Each structure stands twice: as C-alpha cells, then as structure tokens.
Simulated assay, not measured.
Amino acid sequence: MTTLKDISIRTNVSTSTISRVINHDQTLSISEAKRLEILSTVEKLGYVSPKQRKAKQVGTSYDPSDESAHPLELVMVNFLDPVREISDPYFTSIRVGIENACFKNKIAVRTIRRDLIEKSAQLLSKPQAVIAVGHFTQQEIDLLYQFNQNLIFVDSNPLGIKTDSVLFDRYAAARELVNLIIASGTKYPAFIGNDESRLHVFRQLMKEHNLYHDEHCVVSKEFCIESGYKAMSQILDTDHQPDVVFAATDMVAMGAYRAIYERGLGIPTDIKVLGMNDISTSAHMNPSLSTMRLYPMEMGETAVELFLELIHGRKVKKMVHLGYDFIQRESF
C-alpha cells in the first residue's frame, strides 16, 4: 500500500506538505509545477488517504440481506480523465468537495469516466442519484438521463428544469471583470480562453465601447499554462501591444505571465493581467494575480446536499448559483 513517505521520496517534498496539497490547503505556498508533480505522483502510485479508505468501507460494511439497512450511494461521472483533472485545480476541487461531503454523510460514492457511460447502464441506474461533473456531449447527456433521472449537474445545466444543477454565474462574473477592464482606461484589451460565456461577454462589451480588436482575442481549446503561453505570444506578435489581458483561468494567466516576461515586459507596468478561479498559487505569483475567486469545493458539497434532499423526498428540481468575489492584487 502506497504511503505519503513513498510520495515524499519520489517528489523530494515533506509528507506534511504532500498532505496539505492533497487536501487543497489554500494557505500553502508552493509552485504550481511542484503541486502538479505531487498530484501526478499520487495518481500514478494509487495513493488512497485514510479518509478515502474509510469512505470506501462505508459502501462495503453493510449486509445486503439486511432489509433494515438502506445505505446511501451515488455515482459521480467526471468529464475529465484523471490525468487532465490533475492539471485543473477547479474541477479537482469540485471532486474533493463531493468526496468530503460523501464521507461526512456516510454516502458510498463511485466514480466513472465519461467514456464508460454507455457501458454502465446498470451501474448508473442503481444508485439513488448521479452527480455529473463538467460538460458532456448531447449523446452522453441523453444516456445519463435515460439511465437515471435523478441527475445533479455541476458546472453545467444542459437539461434545464429536468434536473438539479450547481453553477456559478459565468456571465455575471465575466461582466464584472470586463467592466473593471473598461473602467481602467484600456485602449487595447486582450482575451485568452475558450469559446464560451467569458469570451462572449468580452466581445460584446468591448464592441459596445469600440475597444474590440479581433487579433487580441485568442480562442484556445485547453485551459492550461501552455495554452496561455502560446496565446499570449501570438498576441504580442501583433502590431499593437495589449495593455490588459483577461485570462479565462488562473492557469492560463500563468502562461501569459511567462510570455510577457520573455519579451522583457513588466506586469502591471506594461500589461495588466486578470484571471479567474483564485487557485492556491495565485496569491504567490510575481506579481500576485488579481482574479475572480470561485468556490468549486463548495459547489461539490452543494451537489451532495441536493442529493440528500432528493432521497428525502424533494420533488421540485433546483438550480443553485454560488457566489464569487473579485480579489484585487498587484497584477491589476
């Protein structure tokens, strides 16, 4: 059985620091590269924490023949595979929130990947509810609803009032950040991110204020450091240097930092940078990153609260919006 000491030997990091990374301690000061190395090693070695071992035992410690025993159980479907999730603190935190809440409430939880949905009809139809984390294709959504109508989506709401969902208002959060950029007196604002609400809000508001420059708006497929670096490098090769960059996530912002510094430019003296998520390393970047703080762990916990309401007889579907807070630091 893998221990924290085994991970410590592989990563050359103390066991106490490894434990804080695994438990997503927001006060821990550690580089993003080292944090990802630790999480990757945890995944490769198959480390299971004492809490996780106890949680698994919850689902196996009862006698199925006992008519009086009605264990709580749910299935979590994650749209990211373990390797991709390791590099995405937002969705990692959602999963941890779900697992922690399940452990606290003695709920047996089993996780399956999206590529196994079609083959998992029996597994998905058995539990009292299914929590679907992330964004799925229409075919996957239809299958999930076919197998189990007690669906709880986290970070998406593809079926509207037919299922429960837990979200934050992406449009409102993006609008607040873009309005801050406009109010700062920007002349050449830039955006790096995916083709979704943050991009749409940026384009709409910048066009309304005659500030939109298509060459300064780069759409990437991945929310990662490398995509942020490539997109920022592309923007810096245009005729006009941007004065503010809205990075759709803090990971993207980290890549933008690197590209900006490689050109000999300063933050925020030459280019201001804004992110979204407020991951643990954002406060320790140089300079510290101004960002919109989201609450992914609480989103996961809320999904489990909705599950408990469902099994206690709630009939009306719920869509829960969690809040967000702008954290102003040195980069803006």
Rank of each mutant, 00 (worst) to 15 (best):
T3Y: 04
I18F: 05
V21Y: 09
I22D: 00
L28T: 09
I38L: 01
S40N: 11
S40F: 13
E43A: 09
E43Q: 00
V48N: 08
K51C: 11
K56I: 14
K56N: 13
G59I: 04
D63W: 07
P64F: 06
P64I: 05
S68D: 11
P71C: 12
L72F: 15
L74N: 04
M76S: 05
V77T: 03
V77Y: 02
D81G: 10
D81I: 06
P82K: 00
P82V: 05
D88Q: 08
I94N: 06
I94G: 04
E99M: 13
F103H: 14
K104A: 07
K104L: 12
A108I: 04
T111G: 01
I117Q: 06
A121D: 13
Q122G: 10
L123H: 06
G134I: 03
Q139H: 08
L143P: 02
Y145C: 00
F147A: 00
Q149L: 07
L151T: 12
N157I: 06
I161N: 15
D169I: 02
Y171H: 09
A173D: 04
A174E: 05
A174L: 06
E176A: 06
V178I: 01
I181M: 13
T186W: 07
P189V: 10
G193L: 03
N194P: 05
N194G: 13
S197A: 01
R198N: 12
Q204L: 09
N210I: 04
Y212E: 06
H213C: 09
V218S: 02
V219Y: 12
K221E: 13
E222C: 07
C224A: 09
I225L: 10
K230M: 11
Q234M: 05
D237Q: 04
V252S: 03
M254Q: 01
A256S: 14
Y261D: 02
G266D: 12
T269H: 08
T269I: 13
D270A: 08
I271D: 05
V273S: 05
G275Y: 10
S280G: 14
N286I: 15
M292T: 11
Y295W: 15
L306G: 15
E309W: 13
I311H: 03
R314G: 14
V316H: 07
K317I: 14
K318V: 14
H321N: 15
H321L: 15
Y324Q: 08
Y324V: 06
Y324L: 00
F332P: 11
